[in-house]
Design a protein around this nucleic acid. Structure first.
Lengths: 244, 244
DNA sequence: TACTATTTGTGCGTATGTATT
DNA sequence: TAATACATACGCACAAATAGT
């Protein structure tokens, strides 16, 4: 029944090798425990023991009901005066993409109005989107723009699927990060689903204000970064503040 | 069958508390898995899951066939010119004791003869003993002394059960550590049994030469310290050398 | 030395709970 | 809602190391 080396140890080593060798890529889902049990012709418990060891090594991460996923090395994400999502990912050698969730015109909340220098209730474009690096969700963002100043921005955001591109289309050739506030959050079930996480997983909420070259606010963004998939790197000493 | 918090989690927390509160002292053996299963009225697997978590926290250590033991905080063991086993333990607030394994007169090996400045084959007293701190094995030592110079030392070692005391009885009122060499070793089954360890556990082999006040070697000692129970602290910069 | 009882380690089978899709 | 997939728990059996006789 038992060998000199435990069965689960062999399976662990084998899967470890396959992950390191790239058979299962970062972020990929492993076959189900049942499938692995079939493949190795062992009981599901034995596979679970192997997966548990891999999880303790930090190589893999199980999500109840979803599967077991290969952990990706965190993405270095510089935050500075010229923070650009696409540029950040390209220079990290990752492929950026965005999935638009919502795009609508609403009346600004008090926080949004204050950030953008508007009166409460003023019309704003609101965009919600998920950002991906190599098809792995990195962040969940909600961006606000003044709809009075940029009436055509909604269309531009939908067409370009890029904040930088859309702002360029409406006459804002450049913008700068004015302030960033970072806080820690736990993913609620909806966020977890969108970001392919488990409920309660750590998120970093970034509340940022971007201004044009004249210093006038153009965007107020609230972005939830996946804590384990990004490493936010602060590059400038402006108004960034850390809050737990 | 399943609660909001897993059964094994509760058991883990409970045992954790009992260990921290001193219900199970450092070095003590916990009840067997079967007993714990009875106590908590759960399956043995459930107890094992809790113990596994405690072991991963480093709070407990299982030994196949022997039991599950509470890990003790490592003992700070200074090594310097005046290294004294009893003194070291007393100043650490631990109770020292020794168990004599062997005491005999033999002919010196070449290494022993060289260390003591004798000719190979010269008669030497050889003592093997286990040292304890609060009844927990700390080290396994083999000491050599010149039997020609100290014919009565064998009796003195048996009577005093102390190197310092025995040497005083034969006219060596004081002695100094001349050299110490430290290497890493793995416990063989015999050592593991004596030291209440598992085979393969890490040991630190200390090979030391003690000299009298005239600089003449009086003792050559080879001591196997239990890696996880002691923290050797070097206090002088004489001939100490570290080898892996 | 050899044997036995004890104790932890591994593995299978089964059932059910819970979260996700 | 239903199906899927991981999480927990029980019971049984045997292997392997240990400790004592």
């Amino acid at each position: 029944m038992t060998q000199r080396v435990a069965l689960w140890q062999n399976i662990k080593d084998l899967l470890h090798g396959e992950i390191v060798q790239g058979v299962w890529r970062a972020g990929a889902r492993l076959p189900t425990e049942a499938d692995l049990a079939l493949r190795f012709d062992v009981n599901r418990h034995t596979v679970r023991r192997a997966l548990q060891a891999l999880a303790e090594e930090g190589l893999v991460q199980p999500r109840r009901g979803a599967g077991v996923f290969v952990r990706a090395a965190p993405l270095r994400y510089p935050i500075g005066p010229r923070t650009r999502f696409r540029q950040n990912l390209l220079s990290a050698g990752r492929t950026p993409s965005r999935k638009l969730l919502h795009l609508s015109q609403q009346s600004a909340s008090s926080a949004e109005a204050k950030a953008l220098g508007l009166v409460p209730g003023a019309p704003v474009h609101v965009m919600e989107a998920i950002s991906f690096a190599d098809d792995l969700p990195i962040s969940l963002a909600r961006s606000c723009f003044c709809a009075t100043r940029f009436p055509e921005l909604g269309v531009a955001l939908r067409d370009t699927n890029s904040v930088t591109g859309a702002l360029a289309n409406v006459g804002v050739a450049d913008y700068l990060r004015k302030s960033t506030r970072l806080t820690g959050q736990n993913a609620d079930p909806v966020q977890a689903r969108h970001l392919q996480l488990s409920t309660g997983d750590a998120l970093i909420l970034s509340e940022a204000i971007n201004v044009d070259v004249t210093g006038r606010p153009v965007e107020f963004g609230r972005t939830y970064f996946v804590g384990e998939r990004v490493e936010l790197v602060l590059e400038s000493e402006d108004n960034a503040a850390f809050v737990t």
